[in-house]
Design a protein around this nucleic acid. Structure first.
Length: 551
RNA sequence: GCCCCCGUAGCUCAGUUGGAUAGAGCGAGUGCCUUCUAAGCACGAGGUCGCAGGUUCGAGUCCUGCCGGGGGCACCA
């Protein structure tokens, strides 16, 4: 019996109580089922009676008793107690609890997926780093988190498009081209230009392909540096993202959007909605109508579009492609954008509370020996995604960036995350999976199979109950992580599950010792172990972290 | 000055969207391997949930103010 099944059973019991005249309320569609921290409070607890006390006009404990009487008729439920202010503490029968392993094994990689968000067409935009440099540490947090969130939303049934906004038009790209040319000529980088090993590396490649470029007229040279520099940079970005396990469905080119006249179209639409005005020779959007700090310029007095104009057009483009939920993942240094993005949404006549969601991620620092870490070989202090992967590997890097709330700034202790010990959370979780895989291999060698079925009531040890209960939580963890846009919940859950498994493993021998024969308990436990493996693998998969069979 | 985020055990952080006695891990202590991976497990100490009010049956969680830390407030991108 899953928590969801139990919730339905409680709702049914409430309906039965109402039908029997024991309770005068409108039965709720669903109730909250909790897994209590304290096992004295049963396998599961619900506060349904506390919620219904007011509409029923009766003390919570009375309501609880009325529900409990009807709940006790279920054969899956071993005990129901009314406790505290009116909680219902429910203990499942061993058989009902043990059934879960079968359900999980049968579902396999689908266990944890649901159709909770099936009505949502989500556009998930993340990373969107300018193609003027490699992916740095801050972007890397979003690469890990955005990709994980995409997987989690998909698991929850949402129709997700992962998108990278390519800022390939405008001043930054011009500066990049100028910086490349300066590097090629051995000149100093221009003011506000780009510096670093990667700039000279790309410049060298372009010079190699166009030996005459250093003697070419400046405009002609810049055009080549601009076009090819961006291509090479983007290729490098895509390569490092791919190595990190991150794939986008759409790389959305700002330049292409401009070429299609979408900026003019967006401005016309905003004008039609009545939020555009002219002042000091510039064209403005009156975002203060919708709570922004100040109005924003769309087109400068010199006729150039602002970056913000792109935001407006891009928003409209996404909406016209049918997305009703636009999720933007931004760094803390961009949190000032929230107001204007919401205002853009409202200016087009949409609902900023529904159509636009902005997730703000706090900053990431690396620590080594308790001190801020710097790349020693380089003058620059910027740390790239590839540096982090070199230091920790993809699994540890992704996991380290995914296990914390986006609200909290994170200090990644390189010593800790590079460790091959249980101090390192990702190893702790992966080790549980490897340990299970090893056990299952041993079972095969001993010629023991779990068979087509097992007796679920044999999974009656306390550690088995704990493990089953933990496995049963997984679908709810996934849906809550999806609904709250909080991938770290999956990581924390996996750590807890790994611990629960290790305790089970310590307490319950699975395979027979010596010449002993395999028993029904052996087979029942093999189902439970395989179910655990499935959940660990599915959960790690949601984070884009591998589930190794050997370590 | 205004806006956003944070403040929970010595350290790093969770806290099931308002529930029962606030939890893990690390650090430090003591045990547990002649058989499934000891990269593991078991046993304890450690707290005014920044402070002060408020909302209610009930607040770490919601509201207000204050203190402290981080980040941000362009006709830049």
């Amino acid at each position: 019996m899953t928590p969801a099944d139990l919730a339905e059973a409680v709702v049914s019991a409430i309906r039965a109580a109402v039908d029997a005249g024991d309770l005068a309320v409108t039965p709720p569609d669903s109730v909250v089922i909790e897994r209590p921290k304290n096992r004295d409070h049963g396998d599961y607890a619900t506060n349904a009676a506390l919620q219904l006390a007011k509409p029923a006009g009766r003390p919570p404990r009375d309501v609880a008793e009325a529900i409990a009487a009807h709940l006790r008729t279920s054969t899956s439920i071993a005990a129901v107690e009314v406790a505290g202010p009116g909680f219902l503490n429910i203990t499942l029968s061993d058989a009902a609890q043990g059934e879960l392993a079968r359900l999980i094994v049968a579902a396999g990689s689908a266990y944890g997926t649901s159709d909770t968000l099936s009505k949502e067409k989500v556009n998930l935009e993340f990373v969107s780093a300018n193609p003027t440099g490699p992916i740095h540490l801050g972007h890397t947090r979003w690469a890990a988190l955005g990709d994980a969130l995409g997987r989690i939303l998909t698991a929850a049934g949402a129709d997700v498009t992962r998108e990278y906004y390519l800022n390939d038009a405008g001043v930054q790209v011009d500066r990049f081209a100028e910086s490349l040319r300066a590097a090629a000529l051995g000149h100093e980088a221009p003011e506000d230009g780009y510096v670093g090993d990667y700039v000279t590396a790309i410049a060298d490649r372009i010079v190699a392909a166009h030996p005459d470029i250093t003697t070419m007229a400046e405009p002609d040279a810049l055009a080549i540096f601009r076009r090819e520099g961006m291509e090479l940079m983007l290729a490098e970005i895509r390569k490092s993202l791919a190595e990190f396990g991150v794939e986008f469905d759409v790389y959305f080119s700002e330049q292409a959007m401009r070429d299609k006249g979408e900026l003019d179209a967006a401005l016309a639409s905003l004008r039609a909605h009545g939020h555009v005005f002219e002042q000091d020779g510039a064209v403005w959007l009156r975002t203060t109508d919708f709570g922004d700090d100040k109005d924003r310029v769309v087109r400068k007095s010199d006729g150039e579009w602002t970056y913000f104009a792109g935001d407006c057009a891009y928003y409209l483009d996404k909406r016209e492609r049918g997305f009703d939920r636009l999720i933007y993942m931004l760094g803390a240094d961009h949190h000032g954008y929230v107001g204007r993005l919401k205002a853009v949404c409202a200016s087009f006549g949409d609902d900023p509370d529904k159509n636009v969601e902005v997730l703000i991620g706090q900053l990431v620092n690396l620590l080594k020996d308790g001190e801020p870490f710097r790349m020693s070989k380089r003058a620059g202090t910027i740390i790239w995604m590839t540096d982090l992967v070199d230091l920790l590997g993809v699994d540890a890097a992704r996991y380290a960036l995914s296990r914390y709330s986006t609200d909290s700034p994170i200090d990644i202790d390189l010593d800790l995350w590079a460790k091959q010990t249980s101090d390192n959370p990702v190893f702790y979780v992966q080790y549980a999976h490897a340990r299970i895989s090893s056990l299952l291999r041993n079972a095969v060698e001993l010629g023991i199979t779990r068979g087509d079925d097992y007796d679920p009531s044999l999974l009656a040890e306390p550690q088995e109950g704990e493990l089953l209960g933990a496995l049963g939580e997984f679908p709810r963890v996934v849906t809550s992580a999806a609904e709250l846009r909080e991938p770290h919940r999956v990581a924390r859950y996996l750590e807890s599950l790994a611990g629960t498994y290790h305790r089970f493993y310590d307490a319950c021998r699975v395979l027979p010792m010596g010449d002993e024969p395999a028993t029904d308990t052996t087979r029942a436990r093999l189902w439970l172990v395989e179910a655990t493996r499935v959940v660990l693998a599915n959960g790690l998969g949601l984070l884009g972290v591998s589930a190794p069979e050997r370590m």
